[in-house]
């Protein structure tokens, strides 16, 4: 149910029913409402239109709107499932759900594969990995020679690209992360377990009867 269908709902675009979002995710209704407090804060930081644009997303990530970042852009694009150039509340909750500690590991692996498959070809290609490595080096001011970058790429593909076709497919990725579980650490946000205590003000703005939670 969208917010325009009920007089009791907040009048903002994309604010889906917390009960519905809770039923589709690992979040309780209270947690969805707490996430709305976070969403409101991010989505009003530049333009108060109830939607998160790329600039607002970067501002929330880096506390600095001028910081262009390949990875932040990629995450934004994956959150923006409807490819509208903005993230609505439903997109936000469903995307963050993947990062919930209780979400299925397979969903996290799948999301991470999409994240690194920059050109959406269904494969993580060597050129994409190189592009990401270079972006990381620029971001971190870490200095590595071209030769070292190529050595890291060689080593990575030797380990991950089992069929030696020069690219990593979904099955190879699943296998690779199972042997390198630390790569999945970024896919779990412990904050999501305590979201109601991080944003306690949701209680004052709650629209859902306690009995419904």
């Amino acid at each position: 149910m969208g917010c325009f269908q009920s007089a009791q709902r907040r009048q903002c675009p994309g604010h889906e029913d917390p009960l519905l979002l809770s039923s589709q995710t690992a979040f309780t209704v209270s947690e969805v409402e707490a996430l709305f407090e976070l969403f409101k804060s991010i989505s009003s930081s530049v333009i108060d239109d109830g939607l998160i644009n790329k600039e607002e997303f970067q501002l929330a990530l880096f506390k600095n709107r001028k910081k262009e970042n390949l990875f932040a852009n990629r995450i934004f694009d994956l959150f923006d499932v409807k490819q509208k150039g903005v993230i609505d509340f439903g997109d936000f909750v469903r995307a963050l759900n993947v990062f919930h500690p209780n979400s299925p590991h397979e969903d996290k692996v799948d999301f991470s594969f999409k994240l690194y498959d920059l050109d959406n070809t269904g494969f993580i290609e060597r050129l994409e990995v190189k592009q990401m490595l270079i972006a990381l080096l620029c971001e971190s001011e870490m200095k590595l020679s071209d030769e070292t970058v190529e050595t890291i790429l060689d080593k990575t593909f030797l380990d991950a690209d089992v069929n030696r076709d020069g690219k990593i497919d979904k099955e190879e990725w699943q296998n690779f992360v199972s042997r390198n579980p630390s790569l999945m650490k970024i896919m779990t946000l412990p904050y999501l377990r305590d979201i109601t205590t991080t944003f306690p003000s949701f209680v004052f703005n709650s629209e859902v009867d306690e009995i419904a939670t």
Binding site: L61, F62, F71, L136, T148
Partner: peptide, 24 residues
Amino acid sequence: PVLMNAFELISTSQGLNLGTLFEK
């Protein structure tokens, strides 16, 4: 860093650390 695989390095990017979204 030579001993690390590329994804270990990439996963250290600040742009992939969504935890900062929750910092006020």
